Amino acid sequence: DEEIEKWIETLLKRNISLRVNGKDLEIGSEEFKEWVEKFIKEV
């Protein structure tokens, strides 16, 4: 979905790490990609 890709790009540009389930996810890491894929499937 384009919306999500733009959102991810924005996050990448800002180099933010997300806190997911109490863990810091490094943007661009494998864990982050897995989380994004799960997130996309749920939406």
Rank of each mutant, 00 (worst) to 15 (best):
K33N: 11
R19E: 06
R14L: 15
I4Y: 09
F39I: 10
S29W: 10
F39W: 12
F39V: 08
V20L: 11
D24I: 12
E26H: 10
N21H: 03
D1C: 15
K41V: 03
F32S: 01
E26V: 12
I40T: 02
T10H: 14
G22P: 01
I16N: 09
K41S: 07
E30G: 08
E9R: 07
K33D: 03
K33M: 13
V43Q: 08
T10W: 15
I27P: 11
E34Q: 13
K33P: 02
K41G: 02
D1E: 14
F39H: 05
W35S: 00
L25W: 03
E9F: 10
N21Q: 06
I4R: 04
E3D: 13
E42I: 13
K33V: 07
E42A: 12
E30C: 12
N15P: 14
E30I: 12
N15D: 12
I16P: 09
E5D: 13
K38G: 07
E34C: 10
K13D: 15
L18R: 00
E3Y: 13
D24K: 14
R14A: 15
L12S: 05
I16S: 06
R19Y: 07
E26F: 10
E30F: 09
I40R: 06
K23Q: 05
S17A: 11
E3P: 08
I27T: 05
E37M: 14
E3M: 10
R19K: 11
R19W: 07
I16Y: 00
G28K: 04
L25Q: 02
L12N: 05
E42D: 06
V20I: 05
K23T: 04
K38Q: 11
F39T: 04
K38F: 08
E37S: 14
V20H: 03
V36Y: 05
D1T: 13
F39M: 09
G28R: 04
K33H: 12
L25P: 02
I8Y: 04
R19S: 08
E5P: 06
R19T: 10
K33E: 02
E37P: 01
E31F: 08
V36A: 05
S17N: 05
E34Y: 10
E3T: 11
E31P: 03
F32Q: 00
D24L: 14
L12C: 11
K6W: 11
N15L: 15
D24Q: 10
R14Q: 15
I27C: 05
E26G: 04
R14C: 15
K6I: 07
F32D: 01
V20Y: 04
D24S: 06
L18T: 00
E2T: 11
S29N: 02
V43M: 13
S17P: 14
N15M: 13
N21C: 05
V36I: 12
L25G: 06
W35I: 03
R14D: 15
G22C: 13
V43H: 09
N21R: 01
E2R: 13
E2Y: 11
L11W: 07
G28Q: 03
I16D: 08
D24N: 11
W35L: 05
E30S: 08
T10D: 13
D1M: 14
E34N: 12
E2I: 10
R14H: 15
L11Y: 06
T10P: 00
W35Y: 07
R14S: 15
E26D: 12
F39C: 10
E42R: 10
S29R: 04
S29F: 08
V20N: 01
K6Y: 12
E31V: 05
I16L: 01
R14I: 15
K38A: 10
T10K: 10
K23C: 13
K38T: 07
I40D: 00
R19P: 03
N21L: 08
K38L: 08
I27Y: 08
K33Y: 13
G28T: 08
V20R: 00
E31D: 06
E31Q: 10
I8E: 01
I16M: 02
E2F: 09
L18A: 01
K41L: 06
S17M: 05
N15E: 12
V20P: 02
K6N: 04
K38H: 08
K13A: 07
E34K: 13
K23F: 05
E26N: 06
D1L: 15
I16T: 09
V20T: 04
E3A: 13
K41M: 07
E3W: 15
L12Q: 03
E42P: 04
I40K: 07
S17E: 04
D1F: 12
R19N: 07
E37R: 13
E31N: 04
E30R: 09
K6S: 11
E9V: 06
W35T: 01
K23A: 06
I8T: 02
I4N: 01
K23G: 02
V43G: 06
L18N: 01
G28V: 04
E9L: 07
V36C: 15
V36D: 00
I40W: 09
E26I: 13
W7R: 01
I27A: 04
D24M: 13
E34S: 09
N15T: 11
E31M: 13
W7G: 00
L25S: 04
N21F: 07
E42F: 14
F32M: 03
V36G: 00
L12F: 07
L18P: 02
E3L: 11
I27L: 10
G28I: 04
N15Q: 12
I40F: 11
V43R: 07
S29T: 07
E30T: 12
R14T: 15
E5G: 08
E9D: 05
K38E: 05
S17F: 06
I40A: 04
E5V: 15
E5M: 13
I8R: 03
E30V: 10
E9P: 00
E37V: 12
E2V: 11
E37H: 13
D24H: 05
V20D: 02
I16H: 04
K33R: 14
E34G: 09
I8S: 01
S29V: 07
L25C: 11
K38P: 00
L12T: 07
K33W: 15
K23V: 09
G28N: 08
K13W: 11
E34T: 09
V36Q: 00
W7S: 01
I40M: 09
E31W: 09
E37F: 12
E34M: 14
